[in-house]
Nucleic acid binder design. Structure first.
Length: 400
RNA sequence: GUGGCUGUGGUGUAACCUGGCAGCACAGCAGACUGUGGCUCUGCUAGUCCGGGUUCAAAUCCCGGCAGCCACC
């Protein structure tokens, strides 16, 4: 049996928020926690020393991408993800199932899992060709790197993840679109259930396997999937799939699913806006992962506390490229203690951004990741002190 | 001085010959991004060197000016 365990150390009396500790062979993770995403064994633009300096407790790598490049056998030879990237802490890995969606339906229909399907502009981007085909056996993918076709199924995903040597692995699943109808969502869910059992059979027992609940935004399917997945001997439970077409839908889905779960750790796949951390911790989520903080950092959006004056449309962000920061000597967020904020001004970061200096990506990513991790720390401490709800309302209060 | 060529948003250009909604790229301005293929996507601002003529209609044709470049004295 794996050196894996999870212990809930405190429950918030007013909500389902809880404090816990995940223990793995590579160390502990204090929860609730936001897991920075390192798809290709690197949090894009950061190295493992940066992650250490940020105090990251763990990271999450991707099966599909590392299988294609450099190849999971190479990662294995180099000591697994930990050895390969020089980061000796717990590693999560995603199963590659999500890429069936993001490279298949998602690409074809230009949609993401949260269903922002009606872009502001009238001209919807032209459809692109799907790069994935799904059958009951598994998923055929076209490599995003060279166009060659590859096949992934539950057994192979388990094998690859074993080579990656991650501490916590995800079952092979099919993520559906918010546009998928009931019949298709049901079919995908049943496939995911079948694959879940195969994963349990084939996975490397030194690793901890999380089962993934699907069912889209249909209440009875979510209930079925919750019951089925949690009846199996997974070490943890992940919630995946389409989470509806709005944050309200997502909250509703969590409220259907989480009360039916036992005390095993719960991971919410692919979520992580600032407000989501509060809403989802409140509903009982222990860990999240999301590319958003690093992706938006590279594209010019940097996190700030509401009191530090964010954008009109989003009080948790500033757009560093905006002209008003041209000669602003303040740090990104005067309340932030990250190394970027301690050393550099908005004016300098804007300059690096507009001149496309590579240092910008790193400094911006350091800030956004630090911001998320530090917010999670505040959340944990508030649960400990019993002030979670107060902290949440302080952050999410509507502007008058 | 004489002759020729060229003048289109901030920049580079298309439409000129054959008159008919001035298009594109970059820059600028603003926004988006949720289990990372892609520093990507979506909006917006901004222009016919000046004056006259012909015409229903002129960036486009004609005349004059101005500016730049080239050649010859």
């Amino acid at each position: 049996m794996a050196a894996f365990s999870f212990r809930v150390t405190k429950k918030d009396p007013k909500t389902r928020a809880r404090l816990g500790i995940i223990t793995t062979a590579h160390g502990k993770i204090e929860t609730p926690y936001f897991v920075p995403v390192a798809t290709l064994a690197s949090v894009r633009s950061l190295d493992s020393q940066d992650l250490e300096a940020l105090g990251a407790q763990c990271t999450l790598a991707n099966t599909y991408h590392l299988h294609l490049r450099p190849g999971d056998n190479i990662v294995k030879k180099c000591g697994g993800v930990q050895g390969f990237m020089g980061f000796n802490k717990p590693i999560f890995s995603d199963s590659g199932g999500f890429q069936a969606f993001s490279l298949g339906y998602g690409m074809e229909h230009n949609i993401n899992k949260l269903g922002n399907i009606f872009p502001e502009g009238k001209k919807t981007a032209e459809k692109k060709k799907s790069m994935a085909k799904i059958t009951d056996k598994g998923i055929s993918f076209q490599s995003v790197y060279d166009g060659s076709w590859h096949f992934l199924d539950a057994k192979k995903s388990m094998k690859i993840q074993s080579h990656l040597g991650s501490d916590i692995i995800m079952a092979f699943d099919e993520c559906t679109s918010p546009l998928s109808d009931y019949a298709y969502t049901k079919k995908a869910m049943e496939r995911t259930h079948k694959w879940a059992k195969q994963c349990l059979k084939y996975y490397d027992k030194k690793q901890a396997l999380y089962g993934i609940i699907q069912g889209g935004w249909f209440e009875d399917l979510r209930a079925q999937s919750t019951e089925f997945i949690s009846s199996l001997p997974f070490e943890g439970i992940a919630i995946g799939g389409s989470l509806g077409q709005s944050k309200k839908d997502m909250h509703q889905i969590l409220d259907w699913v989480i009360p039916q779960l036992d005390s095993r750790p719960r991971h919410l796949l692919g979520i992580g806006d600032i407000d989501d951390l509060f809403e989802c911790v409140e509903r009982g989520i222990d860990t999240f992962d999301c590319v958003s903080p690093t992706r938006i950092a590279r594209r010019g959006s940097l996190y700030v506390c509401p009191e530090s004056g964010g954008n009109v449309s989003n009080k948790f962000r500033i757009s560093i490229k905006t002209a008003k920061y041209k000669s602003d000597k303040k740090p990104i967020d005067p309340r932030c203690s990250c190394s970027t904020c301690r050393n550099y001004s908005r004016a300098y970061l804007r300059h690096l951004y507009t001149t496309k200096e590579l240092a910008y990506n790193r400094l911006a990513s350091i800030h956004n990741v630090h911001f998320m991790l530090s917010l999670m720390e505040q959340i944990r401490s508030s649960i400990k002190k019993g002030t979670f709800s107060r902290l949440k309302s302080k952050w999410l209060r509507k502007k008058k």
